[in-house]
Amino acid sequence: MTAPASSEPVASADAPIAAPAKPTVWRKLFRSPSVVIGLAIVLVMVFIGLIAPLIATADPTAINPGARNRVPMATSTMRLDDGTRATVTHYMGTDTLGRDVFSRVVYGARVSIFIGIAVALLSISIGLVIGMIAGYIRWLDGIIMRIMDGLMAIPAILLAIAVVSLSRAGIVSVIIAIVVPEVPRVVRLVRSVVLSVREEPYVEAAVVSGTPTVKLVLRHILPNTVAPLIVQGTFICASAILVEAILSFLGIGIPPDIPTWGNIMAEGRQLFRIFPHNILYPGIFLALTVLAVNMLGDGLRDTLDPKMEKRG
């Protein structure tokens, strides 16, 4: 080269200037009000589910014919297992069989949140594997994606009816019925991330330096899917909680003897005009939980999704 660089010191030889400290992801997350509020409500719901046996005022499945259709805050006497009698305050009233709605709602949180989390984890792990394969192995892509298109055409409720009629109603059938239509959405997301990231020069550089395919995918491609998957996961969780409630309400989900929000509402349906509390309270819990999970998801998307972030 004829151009002497001597007129300026080789800046590169010096230690590089550290970039101004960026706020960490956690900091950014906790600065977002929707993340904080959403997370707080979700945690409260999880906590309620966890300590359900402690705060429930009665056995959620115990039938008390003497205290049917009580309004909220009414009291009744119950015979306990050891034969003594106790007075119970029904914070949310009782249903047509005299079961304590408050205790049922509290226990119902367990089922709803469990199903939400289980569905989110299952559909993300299945979708991640299939999406990686579809995005990375080009000749399989067409085949896999057509199958996924087919799966997407199945409505969750019809599939649930089919699954339940083939086996038995229960948590597992409900989870399968919700996971199957969710998987293709995750597959599409993962595939699109893989397709764009595999063209990045740093991935090509890794290919050229002989990185084995599995290592390449795990090390260079997989981390890019984490943020969108966390966001997608929360939305799947919210919709799973909702779908479970719908299925139970329609009587094709969880068997009626297990208290879930959908079941409680289904029971309260006939007497809704006279005793709205049977639907009102589980409805509030359901709405609040789904709202909170969605808010959390929105907040996560705003902070984690690179498309939302301004270049800077």
Binding site: Y202, A205, H220
Partner: peptide
């Protein structure tokens, strides 16, 4: 590669 901002895994 050409683009120094994309050739290293961030």
């Amino acid at each position: 590669f050409q683009d120094p901002y994309r050739s290293l895994n961030p």
